[in-house]
Amino acid sequence: MGLVKSIANAVKYIALHNKKGLFGIVILLFVGSIAILADKLAPYDPYAIVAPPFQPPSPEHPLGTNDIGQDILSEVIYGARVSLYVGLTAASISTILGLVVGLIAGYFGGYVDEAISGIIDIMLAIPSLPLIIILAAYLGPSLNNIILVLVIFGWVGVARVIRSQTLSIRERTYVEASKAVGSSSFGIIFRHILPSVAPVAVAYVILGATSAILTEASLSFLGLGDPTAKSWGQILYHAQARNALYLGLWLWVFVPGLFIALVGAGFTLLGMAIEDYVNPKLRYA
């Protein structure tokens, strides 16, 4: 209960007091509703071949058609689903993983903590992008593999922050008191520590989603994405591969990229607002 309440409080606060956060929420609601209503909004099935290839924009196809005659607008609309799915899934899984690891390390301390911190330190120093490219290339392009790759490198940052937060909360008097009363470790973590670190975790889901969406798009652009998934990165990949710009079909490139930037900005604004809420020291009008 405490968890839900604290998140609700955060959202309320941000909506009322943080203009940038509100802007982020608006963007995300906009793109989110596109994703949810994709089958109502999209004029065509994004996989259906509805016109000759490489058609310039026209009333029937406001963004034109792609290299095999699919409607680009429909592709972009369905792309919201794929990109949000990848971003949110990857970010949630890595945050949950990081949360568990961070809580364990922070609460139990000792050798457990030393071992986990060691691993975290090493993972943080490993250059992730080149290794992500290697992993994606060899695992084979599918959405789930991309999510897997993003999780492998995504949990580390969360774990580090949660660990240090847990460390400081553990020392507080009420936690000490519950311990003295004889509450189980699980109970203490669940009742006292989790609600305090939850906003941080939520901030990480939000910020992590940005980088997950961007990384998925980059991998797709390099040709390492799922070829039949209609993600924005995949649309860009095909546009680039078939020389869309030289054919004057610049909307084919412009719109999907714009959506990536927009969603990224939305998540970042919201994430920063949550961070502000958690750590009011940096708050500004």
Binding site: T210, L214, S218, F221, L236, V253, F254, I260, A261, G264
Partner: peptide
């Protein structure tokens, strides 16, 4: 600007 994909801007 933080979330603008590099390659997209480069293409434009």
């Amino acid at each position: 600007i933080y979330a603008v994909p590099y390659y997209w801007l480069a293409l434009l």
